[in-house]
C-alpha cells in the first residue's frame, strides 16, 4: 500500500471524525440547494408570465441557461468562501502540533504527503459539489429539460475550479501555522484571480488583456455556458499544478516555527 493512499486514508478518517467537515458539507449543499430552488422558482414564474404575454418574443427562455448557468455562477462564489476553510488546517495544524516533523521523517517523499492530503480534500469537495449534478436529474424527473452537455461541462467547471482553489488553499496552509492567516491569504488569492478579469475591457489597447487570461472567472464562464475548450481545462490544470508544486517546494524548505 503506497504512502499516498495511507495519508489519504488518514486524512479522510480525520474528516469523518470532524464536526466541521459535516457542517461544511451540509452548509454548502443547503446554500447551493437554496440557489437552485429560488432560481427554478423565479424561472417558473417568468415562464408563466411569458405564457400569458406571448408578445414578449425576443426573450429566450431556456431552463439550462437561466437556472444552471446562474446556479453555477453563484456556486463559484460559494467555493471561494468554503475552500479556504477546508484547506486551512491541512499543513498549518501539522506545523503547530509538530506532527509535520514526524510525517516528513517517515520513509515517504514530500510530494506523497501533499498529494495524499490534496486528494482527501478533493474527495470532500466532490461530495459537496455532487448534488449539483442531481438537480438537473430531479428537474428531468418532473418533466423539465436540460441540455446535458451544459450540465456536464458546468459540473466539470465546478470541479476544476475547486481543484485549483484547493491547491491554492493547501499552499497557503503550508505557509503558516496560523490557520486563520492561511484562510485569509487563500481567500485573497482566490478573490484576486476571480476579479482580475474585470479590468480587461477598461482599456481599448490590449495591454490589459493578460488579466482576462489570468482570470479564473473568464475560464469558468465558458465552461458553465456549455463550451468545452481545451484552454480552459489547461488553465485550471496549470493553476492546480503550480500551487501543488509550490506547496512541495515550501515543505522542502523545512521552515518551522522554531
Amino acid at each position: 500500500m503506497g504512502p499516498v493512499f495511507t495519508i489519504y486514508k488518514r486524512e479522510v478518517f480525520q474528516l469523518l471524525h470532524s464536526f466541521i467537515a459535516y457542517l461544511l458539507v451540509a452548509l454548502f449543499i443547503s446554500i447551493a440547494s437554496y440557489f437552485f430552488l429560488s432560481l427554478t422558482a423565479s424561472f417558473s414564474i417568468m415562464s408563466q408570465q411569458w405564457n400569458e404575454n406571448p408578445g414578449i418574443q425576443n426573450l429566450n427562455f431556456n431552463l439550462t441557461e437561466m437556472v444552471l448557468t446562474h446556479l453555477y455562477s453563484n456556486v463559484a462564489v460559494l467555493v471561494i468562501f468554503f475552500v479556504p476553510v477546508i484547506t486551512m488546517r491541512s499543513f498549518s495544524e501539522e506545523k503547530k502540533q509538530g506532527t509535520l516533523e514526524l510525517l516528513l521523517t517517515l520513509p515517504v517523499r514530500d510530494w506523497e504527503v501533499v498529494v495524499g492530503k490534496y486528494l482527501s480534500m478533493m474527495t470532500l469537495f466532490f461530495f459537496m459539489a455532487f448534488p449539483l449534478f442531481l438537480y438537473p436529474i430531479l428537474i428531468q424527473m418532473v418533466g423539465g429539460y436540460f441540455e446535458w452537455g451544459t450540465v456536464l461541462t458546468g459540473f466539470l467547471g465546478v470541479m476544476l475550479l475547486g481543484a485549483s482553489f484547493m491547491a491554492i488553499g493547501i499552499f497557503c496552509s503550508s505557509l503558516t501555522e496560523n490557520q486563520i492567516v492561511a484562510a485569509v491569504v487563500a481567500f485573497s488569492i482566490m478573490m484576486f484571480l476571480w476579479v482580475i478579469g474585470w479590468i480587461e475591457g477598461l482599456n481599448q489597447s490590449s495591454w490589459l488583456s493578460w488579466t482576462g487570461h489570468l482570470s479564473a472567472l473568464n475560464h469558468y464562464r465558458s465552461l458553465v455556458k456549455g463550451v468545452l475548450e481545451v484552454k480552459d481545462v489547461i488553465y485550471y490544470s496549470l493553476l492546480t499544478l503550480f500551487f501543488l508544486m509550490a506547496t512541495i517546494m515550501r515543505l522542502e524548505m523545512r521552515v518551522l516555527s522554531k
Binding site: 502540533q97 520513509p107 515517504v108
Partner: peptide
C-alpha cells in the same frame, strides 16, 4: 532518502502525535 529513513526511528522533541 527512503532506504536510509526506513532504518531510522525518530521521536522528535515534545512528542508530536496525532
Amino acid at each position: 532518502p527512503i532506504l536510509s529513513r526506513k532504518q531510522i526511528g525518530y521521536l522528535p522533541e515534545n512528542v508530536p502525535l496525532y
